Amino acid sequence: MKIDLTNKTAIVTGSTAGIGFAIAKGLAEAGATVVVNGRTGSPVEKAVAALIAAVPGARVRGFAADVGTAEGCEALLNAEPSADILVNNVGIYGPQDFFEIPDSEWSRFFEVNIMSGVRLSRAYLPGMQEKAWGRVVFVSSESGLNIPADMIHYGFTKTGNLAISRGLAKRVAGTGVTVNAVLPGPTLTEGVEEMLREGAEKAGQTIAEAGTAFVKNERSTSIIQRMATVDEVANLVVYVCSPQASATTGAALRVDGGVLDTIA
């Protein structure tokens, strides 16, 4: 299967590193013009340069804006008024006990993980409908179904992504635009590597070994018994954005390594 996204413009939020960067790279490799987004200028510039170096002939540009705010979303829309593909990837996470999470943290997680996708989808979907072609992808998580006891505020936002993507798919039914959610499981991003580093050093393990130990201890239902790579997650997202995925919409697509212990 050859995925060709030539002449398509893709916006990937939170794409300076991790899963977002891998998605941007995969879309660029498929021929899309990719807009890299991050909160500040320097990481965006570095990501754009890295993509151009990694993908010969890539058409990539960047825009720095905090899309976890209404003002940031408006700034991005002013700079990039139309898109064929929108990947709502930006997200924050972190363990915290429920009884110690203040209202401000609930609001912050809601604004970044949910409202960024709501605002940008609301802005870009009408243009996609006019062209009778478009792709919107929400990067959710297996945590949206398997709510972690130590990250309830994170899990609830990822459940929200599932509800919004399903409802939006119905709202734009029959227009040629698809809306889907992708659910990664434990993935070896730069952020996760940093989280694992101290424990790995104490145990005399590599980061990969520490990641595997984490999966076996904390996500014992995993079938692959290791963390996924960012490219493994990105591959599914790129497919969902492709013309070949035209009959896939309103779906919650798992790339969780089998962590969710259900066949449906």
Rank of each mutant, 00 (worst) to 15 (best):
V230D: 10
A200L: 04
G176P: 06
G155L: 09
R219A: 15
T159F: 03
L183S: 05
E193W: 00
N217I: 07
K158T: 14
T187D: 04
G199L: 03
E209M: 05
V230W: 03
I224P: 13
A228K: 05
D231K: 01
E201G: 07
K158Y: 10
T221N: 15
V192R: 06
T157D: 11
T189V: 02
V215R: 09
L188T: 04
K216W: 10
T206P: 08
E198R: 15
G191S: 09
E198M: 09
Q205K: 13
Y154R: 10
R226H: 05
P184E: 11
R171S: 15
K202H: 14
F214I: 00
L183M: 12
P186V: 02
I223N: 00
F156S: 14
V230F: 00
L168F: 07
P184N: 10
M227I: 01
N180C: 09
G176V: 04
G167T: 07
K202M: 10
G176H: 05
G167Q: 09
A173S: 11
L168S: 06
F156L: 15
E218W: 08
K170R: 14
S220A: 15
R166H: 12
T157M: 06
S222P: 08
G204K: 01
A163I: 09
P184D: 07
V172C: 05
R226A: 11
E198A: 15
R226G: 02
Y154F: 14
E198P: 03
L168W: 15
V215N: 12
G185C: 02
S165C: 10
D231C: 01
V172H: 01
R197S: 05
L188E: 04
G211C: 05
G167P: 03
A213I: 00
L162Y: 03
